[in-house]
């Protein structure tokens, strides 16, 4: 009896993670029959048992949110999907070993840019994650990554930029020309794990100088 090749039913089973929102995604056959259903299981690396993910059993969509189930930062995880088509053919594929800490990407920070006459203040707001401490408190990225810092740039003109870098959350670019447009970019950096967010961009204009009017 020659085992039928069902690998076409299911491909690219992997975690997509940003700011610790961990979504399992996969692809089906290109012209995947609408009656193909998918069931998801997950496990902690080192445990024997695979656990069924409630809400992702015999679904037709190709993604499943496993944020809660993969929320322990000291653990590593696997997930696997079983696809079954209308003819009863099935295929199962597993992810690579998933480490939330290593794999999550970082979203741009949330920043308030406050223009003044000769300066621009930038206030970075804490980024809360779905991860909870033992006491139930939601953790921020700063709580999780001890070496997290912010990298700020203010584009003065085509050739000149001002830079700031640090762990604090309030920065002020001073000595600017009143009534002038500036573009600021702010990124989150986690050096030890080579992580860097895409920049938050703010376009602001310094206030007019009315002292002599």
């Amino acid at each position: 009896h020659i085992a039928e090749d069902t690998s076409d039913l299911l491909q690219h089973v992997k975690f997509q993670s940003s700011n610790f929102e961990n979504i399992l995604t996969w692809d089906g056959r290109l012209e995947s029959a609408p009656d193909t259903v998918y069931s998801v299981q997950y496990k902690t690396y080192g445990e024997g048992e695979w656990l069924e993910k409630k809400g992702c059993q015999r679904i037709t969509r190709k993604s499943c949110n496993l944020t809660v189930e993969t929320g322990n930062l000291t653990e590593l995880y696997y997930a696997r999907v079983t696809a079954t088509d209308g003819a009863g053919r099935s295929a199962t594929k597993m992810t690579d070993r998933f480490s939330p800490l290593q794999h999550t990407s970082i979203k741009p920070p949330d920043v308030t840019c406050i223009p003044k006459v000769r300066s621009i203040q930038m206030i970075v707001h804490p980024t809360y994650t779905p991860i909870r401490a033992r006491n139930g408190h939601q953790l921020t990225l700063e709580n999780i990554f001890q070496d997290l810092l912010y990298r700020l740039k203010l584009h003065i003109n085509h050739t000149y930029q001002m830079h700031f870098e640090g762990k604090q959350r309030e920065f002020e670019f001073v000595g600017l020309t009143p009534d002038t447009e500036f573009r600021g970019t702010i990124m989150i950096c986690i050096p030890n794990l080579f992580k860097e967010s895409t920049p938050y961009v703010c376009q602001v204009k310094t206030l007019p100088d009315r002292t002599w009017t």
């Binding site: 690396y45 080192g46 024997g48 690579d96 070993r97 290593q102 050096p191 030890n192 794990l193 080579f194």
Partner: peptide, 26 residues
């Protein structure tokens, strides 16, 4: 430099871990 250790490991991680199919032992 810790970053260099991480860098070196990440260059091999997927190949190496893919060879380990005993997911029930850590």
């Amino acid at each position: 430099v810790l970053q260099k250790l991480w860098q070196a490991f990440w260059a091999m991680k997927d190949i190496v871990q893919a060879q380990d199919n005993i997911t029930s032992v850590r």
